[in-house]
Design a binder for these strands. Structure first.
Length: 801
RNA sequence: GCGAGAGUGCUGGAACAGGUAGACAGGCACGUUUGAGGUGCGUGUGUCGAACGGCGUGUGGGUUCGAGUCCCAUCUCUCGCACCA
């Protein structure tokens, strides 16, 4: 019989779907397992191998869990709002909804062709009105709880997308998505107060099982630092508040620096003797992009504010005040006290402007370089702090500042509030209206979802207005409070909105009265295992944790954290180790591989390709190797003899294999699990019995489910392989009766000897002493055996002197 | 600059908790099956050497009976952050 993978795969995919074999049941008594992967953005290019890697890995886990008796929720959906769809729609004059529908169709058929065990009854799409309704509902709750607010502020504006971006979407001052330059614009924007959750987003990382680099990256992004705010008096009578993490070095503050945008600079302008020079510097700084500002970070520039001085509150000394663009207006208070002796940047500036450097922490040579070590230093030149260690001095000075009422301890974050407005058409409209009488008003929940107007044209505008703004039929509405005339908010939500809670919708996707029922949320929460890309660590992953915590606070969800475990996959590179890209022409289309070798081969290769967490390059030859392996399994099927028990010559290897496959799948090492299965199949090359073949099919089933279900049926085993009960192993049967013991002479490997397993140590030593290899080497060295080290069942090391 | 991770055959990659480095696969070579083969099967394949044997996990040290694995130093690469006071 021929291995007709196309027919077999089609047959089983149909059967799985008809029988709803992989559908999850809320409330089942079985233990639950919720495995999640990031749902795709249905782009016009279709599914690529980058999707297939994490999807296949989680499918293998889900399939194994199911066979182990878990009630498995493994869902799929589409994150379908977004710019590429909108741009494509504009260019080709098709409505984005149609574009989305077409793309989703392609994605769905590709996903099905890969044989994933998704619960297709729970498929979701973020652009469905029934889904959008709850995205908008969550926004209203955020609004009502003071976490969504409108603010006029400088924002990142992508010159190509003609749209505002969140800080997280700007990489090296270009748009993360399209690579076009990002400029600053002053705009009124909807913001989400993610900063209110900064502490919990850091602290609760201790309670979840995320791979370490994800935790580190999130902590760094939130960027919590503890220090103090200190008030300096200016000679004008104004107060300059600074933020510092080193209040202990206050005695070493020899000048101050304000950011060029600091409000006091404007206030003081009339009394500055060098106002012109100051204004020129401000103008230069404003003209520079953030990129240029940080590019030029080698040489410190700045201008002294002549005519104003500050007083160091600890010693009453007058010190000069500068403006410089190395002080950021957006962090802390936009002003610093400069301690050149103990801060590298201040040191550079002091050298450039010839300012005094006063050592206040001993241990370095501050005339040569800034001494920033906080572990070893002892305070000097600091009055009542002298002799203390840095940590001690921090506490003492903060106490002193608080007592005098001129400072207090303070925690700062790099994290900023989330810019939530986008000036595009293809997103969820923000459910707010503006009434002349009542002002800003949220829509009534009963009026959700607020749908997009169905129009012909929705080109982005250059003036920063949403394309929805000119659609007066839609914009003009009535005020939900007074019923008078009102106008709708015309900005839409970012793509991150729908994906911030989608994992909850899977739990109860058709619910019309709530985002999901209490029962479903209680039963399925939290997601047990979430795998996704590192690129989402400070975007989607952080955003969704924020939303989830908020939903927890208002009693909607039962857990503080959405995901119990997070892992991440490496990229699949092209054949030569280069990134796959259209321009290089090295993109692998999963459909081509499926057509040529079958989905089981594709799946097997994707798992076998290498370490899941590392980048791997695609190899067309190695794909064939996996096809060969499945061919061998297929051919083995014709050499299966009767036998309901494992035969003695295969028993140990089978138990070992069950053990290895079971453990390796759980630790994302499908590559070595498959290697072990290949070893087993190689051992079976002459044939195997029914019991052995049955176990092989079960172990291979998570990786190559179609061929296994088919052969299972061909051999008349009961039920369906992919939902049969996972085989168990006996630890005692995982060991060979005879073992090869390595022989080392003085630590060098010389050969092996075969002994019975678990022999007492004395017997092993005796066997070694009598061993030919040992005797020969002892003689050669011309010494005596002084010691023998035995590692049970592994090795003996004979020390000869 | 700071933080994280990684350097193993011709290639992708294995190696539990320090215990036979190179599993498994690809490629290549030879043989064989075949009318033919981008088929199947078999054998070989780290390196030097005819062999005995020696040498081998980026580099240099160290700890240990024993190091790819641990420690110190150093080089290279990848990723993340980047004037965050």
């Amino acid at each position: 019989m021929k291995y007709d993978f196309t027919a077999i795969e089609q047959k089983w995919q149909n059967r799985w779907e008809e029988q709803k074999l992989y559908c999850a049941t809320t409330g089942s008594d079985k233990p639950k397992f919720y495995g999640l992967i990031e749902f795709p953005y249905p782009s016009g290019a279709g599914l690529h191998v980058g999707h297939a890697r994490p999807y296949t890995a989680m499918d293998v886990i889900a399939r194994k869990k199911r066979m182990q008796g878990y009630n498995v929720l493994f869902p799929m959906g589409y994150d379908a709002f977004g710019l590429p769809t909108e741009n494509y729609a504009i260019k080709n004059h098709i409505h984005p909804r149609i574009v989305t529908e077409n793309n989703v169709k392609v994605f769905r058929s590709q996903l099905k062709a890969l044989g994933y065990s998704f619960d297709w009854d729970r498929e979701i799409n973020t652009t469905d009105p029934g889904y959008m309704k709850w995205t908008q509902w969550i926004f209203l709750q955020l609004y009502k709880n003071g976490l969504a607010y409108k603010a006029k502020m400088p924002v990142n504006w992508c010159t190509s997308c003609k749209c505002v971006l969140a800080n997280e979407e700007v990489v090296d001052n270009v748009c993360e998505r399209c690579g076009s330059p990002v400029v600053r614009r002053e705009k009124s924007q909807w913001m989400l107060r993610i900063t209110r959750y900064a502490d919990r987003l850091i602290d609760d990382l201790d309670d979840v099982d995320y791979i370490e680099r994800v935790k580190i990256q999130q902590r760094n992004w939130i960027g919590r630092s503890t220090g103090a705010e200190v008030n300096f008096a200016a000679t004008t009578g104004d107060v300059i508040t600074v933020y510092t993490t080193r209040p202990d070095t206050l005695f070493g503050a020899t000048y101050m620096v304000l950011s060029p945008e600091h409000a006091l600079v404007e206030k003081w302008m009339p009394q500055l003797t060098n106002a012109e020079e100051v204004q020129k510097y401000q103008a230069e700084a404003a003209a520079k992009s953030d990129f240029e500002r940080s590019e030029l970070n080698k040489d410190k520039t700045g201008v002294e504010l002549k005519g104003v001085r500050a007083i160091n509150p600890v010693n009453g000394k007058e010190i000069p005040i500068f403006i410089s663009d190395y002080v950021l207006s957006t962090y802390g208070t936009g002003a610093i006290m400069a301690v050149p002796a103990h801060d590298t940047r201040d040191w550079d500036f002091a050298k450039a402007f010839d300012l005094p450097i006063i050592e206040v922490v001993g241990g370095g040579n501050v005339q040569e370089e800034a001494f920033t070590d906080v572990e070893t230093g002892i305070m000097v030149n600091s009055d009542f702090l002298n002799g203390m260690e840095v940590a001690q001095a921090k506490e003492a000075i903060i106490a002193w500042l608080e007592e005098k009422g001129i400072g207090h301890s303070k925690v700062n974050y790099k994290l900023r509030d989330w810019v939530f407005s986008r000036q595009r058409y293809w997103g969820e409209p923000i459910p707010i209206v503006y009434c002349d009488k009542c002002g800003e008003q949220p829509l009534n929940e009963s009026d959700l979802p607020l749908l997009l107007p169905d129009v012909e044209s929705y080109e982005p505008t250059d003036d920063g207005e949403s394309p929805l703004a000119p659609m007066t039929d839609w914009v003009n509405c009535t005020c939900p409070k007074c019923g008078g005339p009102a106008r709708r908010e015309t900005d839409t939500m970012p793509q991150w909105a729908g994906s911030s809670w989608y994992f909850l919708r899977y739990m109860d996707p058709h619910n019309e009265d709530a985002l999901a029922s209490k029962e479903a949320l209680e039963y399925w929460s939290p997601v047990d295992w979430y795998n996704g890309g590192m690129e989402h660590t400070t975007l989607h992953l952080l955003y969704s944790r924020f939303w989830h915590k908020f939903l927890y606070d208002i009693g909607v969800v039962p857990t503080k954290e959405p995901y119990a475990k997070r892992t991440s996959h490496g990229m699949i590179l092209g054949e030569g180790g280069e990134k796959m890209s259209k321009s290089r022409g090295n993109v692998i289309n999963p459909t081509d591989i499926i057509n040529a070798y079958g989905s089981d081969t594709m799946r097997t290769y994707i798992v076998f390709i290498g370490d899941f967490e590392k980048a791997c390059s695609w190899s067309s030859d190695a794909v064939k190797g996996c096809k060969r392996f499945l061919d061998k399994v297929w051919n083995l099927s014709e050499n299966v003899v009767p036998g309901e028990e494992y035969s003695p010559e295969n028993e140990t290897l089978i138990h070992k294999t069950i053990k290895k496959v079971t453990e390796d799948i759980d630790s994302l090492k499908g590559n070595t699990a498959l290697a072990q299965l290949m070893t087993l199949v190689n051992q079976f090359s002459g044939g195997c019995n029914r019991a052995e073949f049955r176990t092989l099919l079960q172990l291979l089933s998570p990786f190559a489910p179609h061929i296994c279900d088919e052969l299972w049926e061909v051999h008349g085993f009961e039920g369906i392989c992919s939902v049969s009960q996972w085989p168990v192993y006996d630890e005692n049967k995982c060991r060979d009766a005879l073992v090869d013991i390595a022989i080392q002479i003085n630590g060098k490997f010389k050969g092996t000897m075969q002994l019975a397993a678990d022999l007492p140590q004395e017997d092993v030593i005796a066997a070694a002493a009598a061993n030919e290899t040992v005797l020969r080497n002892v003689e050669k060295i011309g010494g005596k055996i002084v010691k023998t080290i035995v590692v049970p069942n592994k090795l003996v090391n004979v020390i000869v002197k």
